[in-house]
Design a protein around this nucleic acid. Structure first.
Lengths: 238, 238
DNA sequence: CTCAATTACCTAACAGTGTTTATTTAAGGG
DNA sequence: CCCTTAAATAAACACTGTTAGGTAATTGAG
């Protein structure tokens, strides 16, 4: 405001009520677009959000978005990066809270599940949607490759889980020697809960907290050594 | 062929190469449409199949489909019914193969996972896609309702799992008293495997068969009683 | 301060989607 | 044989993601 330069303004002087075109820096616009897209996704679901809706929310035309993003997937990509970044932070915070390997793994798993349930639309986008090269960019090739192209937040997040599982094995608390398999199984068990709860909220589920606790108990009882003294400590409620 | 009725044929006599409009019984057309849709879904993915593609495959115009189906979801619905029907058959066959409760549950779980992996696109449609009233029609309200409106194939399929879990509990083979929770947890563990393998085929997974075996071992070791003699029998490989 | 270059933005259009309407025409029964 | 029924069509609707080309706001050089 307070910008009264009073320029010549083209030729036909003051077509009335024409909302003056605002020009923002690319960084600002990008941030606006991503913010609008993220909140719309969360509110209406990923599929029900169009480029036009995002543009309207920002206050520009749909075509203007293409000045800042190659296509719709590119917006997804940025959102996913943020999702993985926060997921990584949540996992690391949960891991840091516990020192004993088993409790640490359990804490990380619980954090994963709760994080997924707290951001269902993004979770669906990241872990339940097939997108050429997109999910790949966020997560895949975490271990077997040697290229080491600055590992993505997604692979780092998986590494937290992987490390926690390995520590449990190193502490001699599980009889399963193959930690890769174990990490995948633990991940799948957690993902199954999140995925089903997100998609089938009509299903007559038991209480969510009870389900999460139960699943954790089941998995952790499963991976423990038969003679592990901790076996008694596992809650095993309900 | 050999139908040379030689009718008056309208007015402008023989516009050349105009493919004569064929008229089929509703049942035949419905079957054609569903068959085309199912094979296209399996081949190209649910999202990449349009009404026009289905119509072209059948040999009619897209609008003709609406004579037989209210909308695209209605086609999905029929396909899903078939999916659930086959799933139910697979689960029952797997259950029937084993008599000991624990082995029966394990057999059913394995059948579930393998069935899902064998029909990934339909599995995604049924268990990983949010669709208003659609999934509900196939699966939800399996237990808590008293209306008993001729239970769907979906709820019957879940019942197989539910019954298998309850039998394990009745046989005293698990310490978990809440069989509802246990059934949901077992389902979630299986679903997690199927879901992740379907969506993230880029991820450097271990061998599929090994993953499935491992997940089954993990879950079944988890649900067993501490002093259950069967504990030693569980494979627990790798 | 002015003028040219850059480029954020807009208008308009494209091809594709699911769906609807009005019209044609094939098939079966009187 | 006509005449009704309804399966199929053609053409349009409103929506989607995306692109081409023109307009104008901002920036930096002279």
């Amino acid at each position: 405001m307070a910008k009264k330069t009073a320029k010549p303004q083209g030729k036909e002087a003051a077509t009335p009520a024409k909302p003056r075109r605002k020009r923002l820096s690319p960084e600002e616009r990008r941030a606006q677009i991503v913010a609008a897209a993220r909140s719309l996704f969360a509110a209406e679901g990923t599929d029900n959000v169009s480029m036009r809706k995002i543009a309207k929310r920002v206050g520009i035309t749909q075509a203007a978005i293409y000045q800042h993003f190659e296509n719709k997937e590119a917006i997804f990509f940025v959102i996913i990066e943020g999702f993985f970044s926060d997921l990584l932070a949540a996992l690391e915070a949960a891991s840091a809270k516990e020192t004993e390997p088993l409790h640490r793994l359990r804490s990380a798993m619980r954090a994963y599940i709760e994080y997924g349930l707290s951001r269902p639309e993004e979770y669906r986008l990241v872990f339940m949607t097939p997108m050429s090269g997109l999910v790949r960019a966020g997560l895949a090739v975490p271990r077997t490759d040697e290229a080491r192209q600055t590992p993505s937040k997604g692979s780092l997040a998986f590494d937290v889980l992987d490390r926690a599982v390995r520590d449990v094995a190193l502490a001699g608390r599980t009889r399963f020697a193959n930690t890769d398999l174990l990490a995948e199984a633990v991940w799948a068990a957690g993902h199954g809960i999140v995925s089903l709860l997100i998609t089938h909220d009509q299903f007559p589920w038991a209480d969510r907290a009870a389900i999460v606790d139960f699943q954790l108990d089941l998995v952790f009882r499963g991976l423990l050594h038969d003679n592990c003294p901790m076996r008694k400590q596992i809650a095993g409620l309900s």
